[in-house]
Nucleic acid binder design. Structure first.
Lengths: 138, 138
DNA sequence: TATAAACCCTATTTATTTTATAGACTTTAT
DNA sequence: ATAAAGTCTATAAAATAAATAGGGTTTATA
């Protein structure tokens, strides 16, 4: 399951996607719309900004805005950013690789082999679904 | 990512699958093979038994054994059992449905719609990969 | 029939991760 | 100047996962 962080990030991105005609959107408005803690959301938006998905304007009249096309924001990107690996095991993660402590030989591990396939197929799904798909369903 | 519980369950099932010629296998042997806590694994095997994947024999000379064909044990089953939902959001979970607190209208939620599609496609993958696939790769 | 081996069951503790909060700082429009 | 808004880092609280503990029951076998 996705963490609340990722879920809230998706809500925020959706909200921003729906308000692209406004120059900026307030954290406050997004938080209120979904009854999310303002401060918690603040951290999330900051991460999205650092990752290059959002831009922001400081000071009075400021706020956040999307700087990518919705079609260029795949679920895989958002999930990796806030939740980490998409692979089901660390030993088959592309971006967060780590060996499994209990594994004797990675080369001979059938679980690893199968999980690498699962990862490839899962990635296909999550790279193909984008914010645009969410927006067209709203 | 999978929890250690699920990961250990897969290791145990693999071990049992490799030793189907023996009548029974000791928790001890599986735990030792992978350096897993005996007691932790005990709980896991008990769950697998209650779910109908394993049989056991009590008392001296006892142990566990597979009671299903490896091809009839899909990853989806093991994951659901120990980790819970396969869906990325509670509101699209088949077996563990719960509404999302921050969602105003499930019917109009684009995130939900997309996540339901992700769930369907993910399920296809995890229902198709079975213990047999793991065993043939060992 | 006593004994030791092995699984069964429930509860509790410990560790880790996630979620949430706090507060001081910086920028900017008016 | 002032107030509005994002930036940043740290900490606290809550939830979940991982591990441990210990007594109970069953069974082979000497």
């Amino acid at each position: 399951m996705l963490s609340k962080k990722t879920k809230y990030a998706l809500h925020a991105l959706t909200y921003l996607g729906k308000h692209r005609e406004s120059k900026t959107v307030l954290i406050h408005d997004i938080a209120e719309e979904h009854g999310i803690s303002h401060k918690f959301l603040e951290n999330i938006l900051l991460e999205l900004k650092k990752a290059g998905l959002l831009g922001s304007k400081k000071g009075k009249g400021g706020g956040y805005y999307l700087i990518k096309e919705p079609k260029d924001i795949p679920l895989s990107k958002v999930i990796r950013l806030l939740d980490g690996p998409i692979a089901l095991l660390p030993c088959v993660s592309i971006n967060y690789y780590e060996p499994c402590a209990e594994c004797k030989s990675e080369a001979a591990c059938g679980i690893k082999k199968v999980m690498a396939e699962v990862r490839d197929e899962t990635l296909k799904i999550l790279e193909n679904k984008t914010l645009e798909d969410i927006l067209t369903n709203e």
